[in-house]
């Protein structure tokens, strides 16, 4: 049977020399002034020209929320869909057209509450999606209810006496869902965002990136304790593959591993540099990456940023396409006339 050829794919040989402007759509950006979403948008629009992908091969799929307005501002193919379902819609896109570069954008409510199921299954399947979750620890679009990442005790419109919900740790969720790439970045550091987005793009398979994002209207300063300029040296733990986990103006803080194999925050002088944990993104076993995600229970303690984990796993849509090819090899291209007359038939004269 005839199969429609993709009009162009990332196998395309046309040289692409794009600039940030090429990725800016003609739509007026309508987030609140000062919203962290602006700098995430800028970081991505600045990063995309460097990856040499033709604009028409990029697809941005989002759910619903402030963050999910994102695709409208990108001059690529895009869909602003329904609340929580973006990972599933994007799976449909990627399965259909493995040659496309599919990005998924959504908020903490979108991806961890209503769409939690789709998120974990997209990660488990290892669909080649680049999933950016803007975590502002609040429902922005619906004007300020608590979210599944809000801290316990939080007073919001729907929790006047304080939230009693225990929050999710998104990085732990992603690692628990078998994600092959898990990273965290934040809206105050454009360079770091670009670096992590590039890594996500380069990763073969599902990439989950948690982006700490300030909602200055409904949850202002949620990350101040770790993201204020003067707080960052002591409060952000940069994860760098192959290097000891160490930070502070003088490298005075570190992470070591206790006798139970559990990482803990220590003073470098107390254990000695040679005894600090050396970060290995590629450990097959997720236990240590998971434990690193638990070093802080909220953005008031030293918090790791960077790539927690990157491993190789078969890509869902490639496996599926492989089964199609295999089956053509085995049985020849499908012939419908033969198929429908298979089994017992009889002829009436």
């Amino acid at each position: 049977m005839s199969v429609t050829e993709p009009i162009s794919g990332n196998g395309s040989t046309t040289p692409v020399a794009l600039t940030r402007k090429d990725f800016v759509s003609d739509q007026e950006v309508r987030w609140c002034p000062g919203c962290g979403d602006y700098s995430i948008l800028a970081a991505l629009q600045m990063m995309l020209p460097n990856i040499n992908v033709p604009r028409e091969d990029l697809v941005f799929i989002s759910g619903i929320g402030c963050s999910s307005r994102f695709p409208y501002y990108m001059n690529t193919y895009g869909m602003h869909s329904i609340h929580g379902r973006a990972p599933a819609i994007a799976t449909g896109v990627a399965v259909s057209r493995p040659d496309l570069h599919v990005w998924v954008i959504g908020g903490d409510g979108d991806m961890l509450s209503i769409g939690g199921n789709h998120l974990i299954h997209a990660l488990r399947r290892n669909v080649n999606l680049k999933i950016l979750m803007f975590n502002n620890r609040i429902y922005g679009l619906t004007k300020g209810q608590y979210s599944p990442t809000s801290e316990q005790g939080k007073i919001t419109k729907s929790t006047p006496f304080g939230s009693i919900d225990h929050p999710f740790n998104p990085i732990s969720v992603a690692i628990g869902a078998e994600a092959s790439f898990v990273a965290r970045t934040h809206d105050m550091d454009r360079k770091h965002m670009q670096e992590i987005f590039t890594r996500a793009h380069e990763h073969k398979g599902a990439a989950f990136v948690e982006v700490y994002q300030n909602c200055n209207v409904f949850n202002d300063g949620a990350f101040d304790a770790i993201l204020r300029k003067d707080a960052r040296p002591d409060m952000l733990i940069p994860l760098r593959h192959g290097e000891p986990i160490r930070w502070g103006a003088e490298g005075e803080h570190g992470v070591a591993v206790n006798q139970f194999g559990e990482p803990y925050v220590c003073r470098t002088v107390d254990v000695g540099v040679e005894h600090l944990l050396v970060h290995d993104e590629h450990r097959q076993d997720p236990t240590l990456a998971f434990a690193l995600s638990r070093l802080s229970t909220g953005p008031s303690m030293p918090t790791p940023v960077g790539v927690f984990r990157e491993i190789d796993r078969p890509i869902y849509e490639e496996e599926l396409a492989g089964q199609l090819e295999e089956s053509v090899k085995r049985a020849g291209p499908g012939d419908l006339a033969t198929l429908i007359s298979s089994g017992p038939t009889w002829t009436v004269a």
Binding site: V59, A88, L100, H118, H121, S327, G334
Partner: peptide, 26 residues
């Protein structure tokens, strides 16, 4: 599969319909 049919057993019917919407987009 040799007819070029891709089938996905989705995580639920919401995902199934959503995946189909994504496929239709392409």
């Amino acid at each position: 599969k040799n007819f070029g049919v891709k089938t996905v057993q989705a995580e639920d019917e919401i995902a199934a319909a959503a995946m189909a919407v994504g496929a239709a987009f392409t």
